[in-house]
């Protein structure tokens, strides 16, 4: 990528709006071009400062505004519903009540029986691989461009309330590219995008338990436990700490992926 192209894409890159391949290319350019890196740093400063200026400290959200509107809405709706209901004769109202009870009973039976949940047939590893492939193929953008694990972890915590705790990498082969918030099985999840030896890899963290990982193979070594699985040419590794499931997905080795979880073996 030339400096001209880098400047052309810089704003979209900083806004997290470039697709993953172009982001990686621009990130590489910034690593080798001090002038463009300096430009990016200045623009980051402006962006941060804009955030402060456009979200002033006194701009505390009027949470009660929504409460007031909802009170108005509920009161108006309640009056309307009662007046509509009273227009019907008694026997029609009784019939409606009986139908409602029947519906509740049928619904309750299905609920107790444990009806199928969305994605119930899909294993956790399968879901993570599908999500990773979708991210790459759909050209989904990263919402934060950062190679700083601390900055990305803080950003993810604010957006998803999930403590991603991205590890500091010990070697240059593994680079953090950026992050985005997402959902896995309807749960808020932290997503980080890495490059390991030029190959893409993802990190996902979400609140969960070992029940999420029961279909994966459990590996206990040196007092530490992780889970591993393989699916559609990808390796998936996972661990659980303090109620947070952390997982890494990619086409590289299990050991390399474990480094994204801060669990790589020394040497």
């Amino acid at each position: 990528m030339t400096c001209f192209e880098a400047r052309e894409y810089l704003f979209a890159f900083l806004d997290g709006e470039l697709d993953a391949p172009l982001s990686i290319e621009l990130q590489r350019h910034l690593e080798h071009c001090p002038e463009c890196a300096r430009e990016a740093e200045i623009e980051r400063s402006i962006r941060r400062q804009l955030g402060t200026v456009l979200n002033p400290q006194d701009a505390t959200a009027p949470q009660d505004a929504l409460a007031r509107v909802m009170a108005q809405i509920r009161s108006a709706e309640g009056r309307a519903r009662r007046s509509v209901w009273r227009r019907f004769p008694l026997h029609v109202r009784l019939l409606g009540l009986a139908a409602a009870v029947l519906l509740l009973a049928v619904g309750g039976w299905f609920a107790l029986r444990g009806g199928p949940r969305p994605e119930a047939n899909q294993s956790f590893a399968d879901l993570l691989v599908a999500d990773f492939q979708h991210f790459l193929e759909a050209g989904k953008s990263l919402q934060l461009q950062s190679s700083d694990p601390k900055e990305a972890s803080t950003w993810l915590l604010e957006r998803t309330h999930v403590a991603a705790a991205l590890p500091v990498m010990q070697h240059d082969r593994c680079k953090l590219v950026g992050a985005r918030s997402c959902k896995v099985s309807g749960r808020p999840a932290a997503f980080a995008f890495y490059e390991i030896g030029g190959e893409p890899a993802s990190f996902v963290a979400l609140a969960g338990s070992d029940a999420d990982l029961h279909e994966m193979q459990m590996v206990s070594e040196g007092g530490r436990t992780h889970w591993v699985d393989r699916c559609r040419g990808h390796t998936i590794v996972a661990c659980i700490t303090d109620g947070i499931v952390r997982a890494a997905v990619g086409r590289m080795s299990e050991q390399e992926l474990l480094s994204l979880l801060g669990m790589a073996h020394e040497g």
Partner: peptide
């Protein structure tokens, strides 16, 4: 129970802070 109102509230609640920040920019006074 008013499920439509509840659905509306659940949809709007996460966006109050951003709407307020935007409104502060569009409007002259708080």
């Amino acid at each position: 129970m008013n499920s439509l109102a509840s659905a509306f509230e659940a949809f709007v609640a996460p966006h109050v802070r951003r709407l307020w920040a935007l409104a502060r920019q569009y409007a002259r006074t708080p």
